[in-house]
Nucleic acid binder design. Structure first.
Lengths: 148, 148
DNA sequence: CAGAATCACTTGCGAAATACAAGTGAATAA
DNA sequence: TTATTCACTTGTATTTCGCAAGTGATTCTG
């Protein structure tokens, strides 16, 4: 069943990075900071492709590159990811920036619509730039609570 | 971050079984049909407890038994689980029974409220009895679609 | 009350998955 | 034309996993 699909350390992370950070190439995943080794990454990308969650397409301007892209099945994981990000922001120390998480909880459907729009239009500007602590507009942050 | 917490084959499954199938004891997890070995199960339960997602309490009537119970942090994973079940029902062959999934998509908040109510009141009657195909009221089933 | 069964684990060990380092071949940049 | 980039492979050591069996405490059975 669906949970078994993601029963490894990297698959969910890859999907998340594609969805909210706009990653498309092998190299971007590698440099993602979480430190996945290249052989494992290659394997996971293959598995996820076989599962119909992502697909590859050649890069038009550079023949060395391969562009990875979520399928419909893949982008349909957006609600799952969103809820995970919200949960993570509530309970884990270094999660996504606070302002955006607040926005997610309030305007769930709107954030989802925006995520889907980006996917449709191949807009790969990240929804969330980084997941570590980010200095931003401090007036709107409300993430100092821990353990709900 | 939060995704790393669930970067293994069993943790999410354990949380799901506690949440929607009402499992509480070691033995129930073992007999769950998915076939987790007892040493791995013991390890995962310990890890999840250390992460504050579940807790143990002694069984009042039988001193051999230990009751596992989700914490607030654990039950807050309900929205994630719900979205996963919905996604799984849409794309995977043998997911939860169809009628309930339909209900989930339509009455998301209501299903969540019921899940939380059960947790609060220690009502461990399963929300979803089994995850394999279940013969039920065929007039309401709408799960013949695949790939959205 | 003695022996069998149940429960929640633990231990040992072979098999599989994983991480790390290095390398490969094609394409592009300098 | 040489160096570099990119998307991977290939080896190998380490870690994790799965299976079978065992342990100690508790409870059921005759």
């Amino acid at each position: 069943m669906s949970l078994e699909q993601f029963g490894d350390r990297w698959s969910l992370l890859i999907v998340r990075d594609m969805m909210v950070r706009g990653y498309r190439t092998f190299k971007e995943f590698q440099g993602s900071g979480e430190g996945i080794s290249s052989n494992i990454l290659a394997g996971r990308l293959k598995t996820l492709e076989a599962a119909g969650i992502l697909m590859t397409e050649p890069n038009e301007t550079d023949a060395r590159r391969v562009n990875y892209r979520l399928t419909q099945k893949g982008i349909d994981l957006a609600p799952v990811m969103l809820e995970m990000l919200i949960w993570g922001a509530k309970y884990e120390a270094t999660a996504a920036p606070c302002g955006l998480i607040d926005q997610m909880e309030k305007g769930r459907d709107q954030v989802l619509a925006e995520t889907r729009r980006r996917w449709r239009e191949r807009d790969s500007t990240p929804l969330i730039p980084r997941f570590d602590e980010i200095p931003q507009d401090t007036s709107t942050r409300s993430n100092e609570r821990r353990k709900g």
